[in-house]
């Protein structure tokens, strides 16, 4: 490959990475289960187990907050799509765990800053704009929410 082309590819790589995560579809299941995840207590480093899946709806705005451990995903009825699928169709969906989604986030950050520069491109989680969250409502039915991964910190 000619050097010039290689240089162009090298510099366009971060843009391609960003486009990839913007367009890639990430499907996550929001289980109604008694699963727990680890967190630290307030004020120290003692490990505390908290409910892994937590859901809260703002009755005034209609916004639904889905927490999976400490990560927050929001469905906003003004911005996002909601539909449903039969359970039979669910088996064909490529599902990501929270850990694998987070790994993608780290990889995308690294790709965006893969060469030395005086500036660092900081990736916010809401730049993953094709995330779908599945909540099973009956044996045969899942509600499918388009959600935004919220950039948040405690």
């Amino acid at each position: 490959m000619p050097l010039k082309k290689m240089c162009i590819l090298f510099f366009l790589w971060p843009l391609a990475s960003l486009g990839q995560i913007e367009n890639q579809e990430f499907n996550i299941v929001f289980y109604k289960s008694d699963s727990v995840c680890k967190t630290t207590d307030s004020g120290g480093l003692t490990t505390v187990l908290i409910e892994k899946y937590r859901k809260h709806q703002n009755t005034k705005t209609g916004i639904i907050s889905f927490y999976i451990c400490d990560e927050l995903f929001e469905y906003n009825p003004k911005l996002n799509v909601i539909d449903s699928i039969k359970s039979s169709a669910f088996k064909d969906i490529d599902v990501f765990s929270l850990g694998s989604l987070y790994k993608k986030y780290i990889e995308a950050q690294e790709a965006l800053n893969s060469y030395a520069s005086n500036t660092i491109r900081i990736l916010f989680k809401n730049e993953f704009n094709n995330i779908w969250l599945y909540e099973q409502v009956t044996t045969n039915l899942y509600i499918r929410y388009q959600v935004q991964w919220i950039e948040n910190i405690e």
């Binding site: 630290t40 207590d41 937590r54 809260h56 916010f124 919220i150 950039e151 948040n152 910190i153 405690e154």
Partner: peptide, 17 residues
């Protein structure tokens, strides 16, 4: 917020867009 877990004192978030 009443939706934060019992171990979370506060949360800062950015509203997309």
């Amino acid at each position: 917020s009443s939706s934060l877990s019992s171990t979370t004192n506060g949360q800062t978030r950015h509203t997309p867009g």
